[in-house]
Amino acid sequence: MTLDKARETVHRACAELVKAGLVARTWGNISAKVDDSTFVITPSGRRYEELTAADMVLVKISDLSYGGSVKPSSEKGLHAEIYRQYPEVNAIIHTHQMNASTVAAARKDITGMDPRHSAILGSIVRTAEYGLPGTGKLARATAFALKGSKAAMMANHGAVCAGRDMKEAFIVAGTLEDAARSFIEKAFIRMSGSGIKVTEKAMHDYYLKLVAER
């Protein structure tokens, strides 16, 4: 992929990601591989709606060096680690999507998925060990958790979704959100007993009952 094409791909993905409700503001980041040694990524801390394609930062996979005055996302190391370990991956989205983040906060793996989810994600989506944002520990743990799947959750943080191209990475992110929602709802049904229709209100009423009984 040419540098201009990669920048344009990431720029377009920013708008799509916000529209899809998978990130808000600057929480999350997106990258596309240019060649075996470089990728472009969203800049650190900037609001997606204000960005242009030229703002996307070119980063070297080997040492995370970059040119220009605009700093790349602080999670550049996470993207680089995934590109290093999984040569078939050409696009990565790091989301703070609501349901996958909830599963990640309980540090559970998603298993027992519906076939329409597992066909895309694999039979398991793991939650990586906790690491502080932007650290090598988080990057290594997340890349490890991605083995055998297109997605991994990051403990107490969010998720990372990988694809052969940006289109696939988006499909993975959307599917992960559905799978995570289903995982939470099944757990709620198991805990609360059958017969309760899963709505936000039913969940909140049951939660308040649990709190009151303690």
Partner: peptide, 22 residues
């Protein structure tokens, strides 16, 4: 926005055996 997400997570992790605190 962040408080909403944090509260939602705090509530729904109860059904997953509880959230793990940072």
């Amino acid at each position: 926005q962040v408080l909403m997400k944090g509260c939602k997570c705090f509530i729904e992790t109860e059904f997953l055996g509880g959230g793990i605190r940072i």
